[in-house]
Design a protein around this nucleic acid. Structure first.
Length: 200
DNA sequence: AGTGCGATTGACT
DNA sequence: GTCAATCGCACTA
């Protein structure tokens, strides 16, 4: 399953947060554990660029957010509301803090394992939402800082598809910088997390 | 030390 | 539609 995918090299990642958020749409997240391999296509992202007051890097580098300051293509995993883990991809040069939040996946391989991880049957609900997809892929803080451009427990793969039809909207769940149109999604995809209003 | 609140989710009225 | 769960960090004193 996961061996049919080709790893996404760092050179394939645009050196710009918004461009990366756009470019990650349609790419594949692969998760490999002793339990098995699971994967899903990215259908929704949000950009948190340099200087964004809603970004976790905004107050400067800290031990807990240092992964955002790694060069592009590293994982930043953060626990929010004490309940849900969020998967981000660092998006700029080393020493610059910014990232792209992965908000939804279209489940591809390893459906039974995802269903077990989520304790949900419904294909549509498996990875629709940032906290749900990390649960489906068994992603937590132990994977923080990992290089997503190398095959391992968590990595990014190319897809075999054409340039997708991408829509943009405001980001979800923010109070600061709530007006900026930095959420991107695969238009018409049934696995999006946002309200219908934002998915047109 | 105490308070407020957040890139959410699931259960319930 | 409303709301509690649950934990780490920022900020105040």
């Amino acid at each position: 399953m996961s061996d049919v995918y080709e790893v996404l090299g760092r050179a394939d990642l645009p050196l710009d947060t918004v461009q990366l958020a756009l470019g990650l749409i349609g790419k594949v997240v692969v998760r490999e554990t002793p339990e098995g391999s699971v994967s899903g296509r990215i259908v929704e992202t949000e950009a948190y660029p340099v200087g964004d007051a809603a970004g976790h890097a905004w107050r400067g580098e800290r031990p807990w957010n240092r992964s955002l300051f790694l060069c592009r293509g590293h994982a930043y995993v953060h626990l929010t509301y004490g309940v849900s883990n969020m998967l981000n991809v660092s998006s700029e040069a080393a020493g610059v803090g910014a990232g792209v939040l992965i908000r939804a996946l279209e489940p591809m391989d390893g459906l039974p394992l995802m269903q077990r991880n989520r304790r949900v049957e419904s294909l549509r609900d498996l990875a629709r939402g940032p906290g749900r997809l990390t649960a489906a892929l068994d992603i937590d803080r132990s994977l923080d800082g990992i290089d997503l451009c190398r095959k391992g427990p968590l990595w990014l793969a190319r897809d075999g598809h054409d340039a997708p039809d991408i829509g943009a909207s405001v980001r979800i769940g923010l109070s600061r910088e709530a007006h900026r149109p930095l959420r991107f999604y695969l238009r018409g995809n049934p696995f999006l997390s946002g309200p219908k209003m934002l998915n047109t």
